[in-house]
């Protein structure tokens, strides 16, 4: 008796999987008709997020972020440089986003892999560096015209299950907030070098050198998919592929918009839909910033123990 019921459920599973493969739209519509999505979420609910600030101990700042199954790892590496002559009072921030080969079934090696994340890089660049007040580059300056920090922010997308931009931006912000800038020592020869821990309080330390990366604003993104008349908040990769129409909104802590992107697609977004997306992004920002603070605090405590 037991064996027959097992075979029945297996057959049902196979049938559901086959139905999903053969008729993805009908499969999806059946769920949406009931007001839920295939993973059990209502249409307006975003996925659960975990933020692990300080995930890599060897990095100067890092964060591992999971949004549902989408996983992104961001790390910051610091380097003392002589500032650029055109901007003597500023440090530098270099961004790099990479897609791991195992992150997505659509991954193709070679140039197309970098093309796939070019949109993400561009949005990250716009969110962090286009405004003068997001990443405050002057807080990376140690001695004007002589020494400044160059922060190399590398982001690795480990699992791309939808909303990669949102996760990448969240991980980047978390990693930058998690970064502790070491003290800097001015040697007898006049060179600036990072001070090791034992040397703290020793002679030759540069006075008032920065300890953290200054962030004037905290931009976070939320992507919504438009599918027929529905707005799906925080879609998975399957939903993104099916809807072919996404609106990404970047907001800061004050609810000001920093970016609204809609890359064409089959569905048009009227003003009401755009407002709905921005409102959802604001709510999501509130939710995420709480988690972010919590995680950063835990990361700082863990770092203090080491």
């Amino acid at each position: 008796m037991a064996s027959t019921s097992t075979t029945a459920t297996v057959a049902d599973d196979v049938e559901a999987e086959a139905f999903k493969r053969l008729y993805p739209e009908q499969f999806f519509d059946r769920f949406l008709g009931e007001g839920v999505r295939p993973d059990g979420r209502p249409l307006g609910r975003a996925r659960a997020v975990t933020i692990g600030a300080g995930a890599i101990t060897s990095a100067d700042g890092s964060a591992l972020v999971k949004v549902g199954r989408t996983s992104v790892l961001a790390g910051v590496r610091l380097e003392l440089i002589r500032p650029d002559e055109t901007t003597p009072g500023q440090g530098q921030l270099a961004l790099n986003v990479e897609l791991a080969p195992f992150s997505s079934p659509d991954y193709r090696p070679g140039r197309s892999a970098t093309d796939a994340v070019s949109g993400v890089v561009e949005k990250l660049q716009a969110a962090l560096l286009s405004g003068k007040d997001t990443v405050l580059l002057n807080t990376l300056c140690v001695a004007e015209g002589k020494a400044a920090w160059k922060a190399q922010l590398d982001v690795y997308v480990l699992d791309a299950d939808g909303c990669v931009t949102d996760a990448v931006l969240l991980a980047s912000i978390a990693a930058l907030r998690n970064t502790r800038l070491p003290l800097v020592r001015n040697t007898k020869e006049g060179n600036y070098v990072p001070a090791r821990r034992a040397e703290e309080g020793a002679a030759g330390l540069v006075e008032g050198c920065p300890r953290s990366v200054g962030l004037g604003r905290c931009p976070l993104a939320l992507t919504c998919c438009l599918y027929k008349q529905h707005v799906l908040v925080d879609p998975t990769a399957d939903e993104e592929r099916l809807a072919e129409c996404a609106v990404t909104v970047v907001v800061d802590q004050g609810g000001r918009l920093q970016g609204v992107y809609k890359a064409g697609g089959k569905v048009l977004a009227d003003a009401a839909t755009l407002l709905k997306c921005t409102e959802a992004a604001r709510l999501r920002h509130k939710e995420l910033s709480g988690l972010l603070e919590q995680s950063l605090q835990m990361g700082a405590e863990a770092a203090a123990e080491r």
Partner: peptide
């Protein structure tokens, strides 16, 4: 209704 949008700032 919008077909494509690209806003930043």
């Amino acid at each position: 209704a919008v077909l494509g949008a690209r806003c930043g700032g």
